[in-house]
Simulated assay, not measured.
Amino acid sequence: MNGPEITLEVAPELRLFVPHDRRGGPTPLVTDGSSTLGHVIESLGVPLTEAGTLLVNGAPVARSHVPGPGEHVDVHAVERPQRVPGAPLRFLLDVHLGTLARRLRLLGVDAAYESEDIGDPALAALSARERRVLLSRDRGLLRRREIWAGAYVYSDRPAEQLRDVLGRFTPALAPWTRCTACNGMLAGASKDTVSELLEHGTQEAYDVFAQCTECSRVYWRGAHHGHLETIVSEAVAEFGGAPA
């Protein structure tokens, strides 16, 4: 590349995306003189979904800005909490984030999830068609231009992933209102209504049930409820919402 030389610095939160020799502070970078700042940032490995305010010599610029000789560029991380205008806040998770999807649904957050790998183009198209924020740890997927909105999931641990998403987007929480299997809404159900779907022991031991209005799966406060209650209570305590 033979063009203007700039100085570029990325925010500490974004340094995991760039080469090691660019993680210590401002570093020189030779550009081609025609690429936009957005393209330059992305070429260094930073998904544009994670880039917030861009400053050139201290002044905000658009991603379409073409860097000139001697400019100093600061790349800030996206502001939190992040607002996503234009549609109700809904999510789409890729095939590797199944546990996160179930935990979001447990909290009443609209979280579509593809349990099979349908491919990046199909996921991006689904994000655009349904106006869902695409959550992924795949930087290549997040670079696709057709996605409605996207966010990189920074951790590979479900508990940290959940805190990351809730802290970044602050969705309204309504625990115990969605089916963790299909994302449908739950409704109260009598024992008589769902008895044919229950094992005999469950019928004898429990009286309060809910059923998914989409897939008909039945829920009750069984042996794993304590673990789920912990997830819910911790999320509600930190991010708000009714424990229900």
Rank of each mutant, 00 (worst) to 15 (best):
residue 168 R to K: 13
residue 225 H to Q: 14
residue 185 M to Q: 13
residue 107 L to I: 06
residue 118 I to A: 01
residue 150 G to L: 04
residue 39 H to M: 08
residue 6 I to P: 05
residue 41 I to N: 12
residue 143 R to N: 06
residue 202 T to Q: 12
residue 96 H to T: 02
residue 18 V to M: 10
residue 47 P to E: 04
residue 192 D to Y: 02
residue 177 T to H: 00
residue 69 P to D: 07
residue 188 G to P: 14
residue 31 T to E: 06
residue 23 R to G: 07
residue 85 P to T: 03
residue 86 G to Y: 09
residue 89 L to V: 01
residue 38 G to P: 06
residue 243 P to H: 07
residue 25 G to E: 09
residue 122 A to T: 09
residue 83 R to L: 14
residue 12 P to K: 07
residue 102 R to C: 07
residue 74 D to G: 03
residue 228 L to Q: 12
residue 178 R to D: 03
residue 55 L to F: 11
residue 97 L to A: 07
residue 53 T to S: 12
residue 217 R to Q: 10
residue 111 A to V: 10
residue 85 P to W: 10
residue 96 H to P: 07
residue 87 A to F: 05
residue 39 H to L: 09
residue 105 R to K: 05
residue 146 E to W: 11
residue 158 P to W: 13
residue 69 P to G: 08
residue 14 L to N: 14
residue 80 R to A: 14
residue 133 V to W: 00
residue 202 T to N: 09
residue 195 S to D: 14
residue 231 I to Q: 12
residue 197 L to F: 08
residue 207 D to A: 12
residue 179 C to V: 15
residue 197 L to E: 11
residue 211 Q to C: 06
residue 28 P to Y: 06
residue 201 G to I: 08
residue 172 A to D: 06
residue 67 P to Y: 01
residue 226 G to K: 15
residue 210 A to M: 10
residue 122 A to I: 09
residue 55 L to N: 04
residue 159 A to R: 15
residue 19 P to H: 01
residue 187 A to N: 09
residue 219 Y to L: 14
residue 161 Q to L: 08
residue 128 A to Q: 03
residue 57 N to V: 04
residue 76 H to D: 15
residue 30 V to Y: 01
residue 150 G to C: 03
residue 193 T to S: 13
residue 71 E to P: 10
residue 154 Y to P: 06
residue 91 F to N: 14
residue 61 V to H: 05
residue 22 R to D: 05
residue 53 T to A: 14
residue 53 T to D: 13
residue 224 H to V: 07
residue 123 L to K: 05
residue 158 P to V: 07
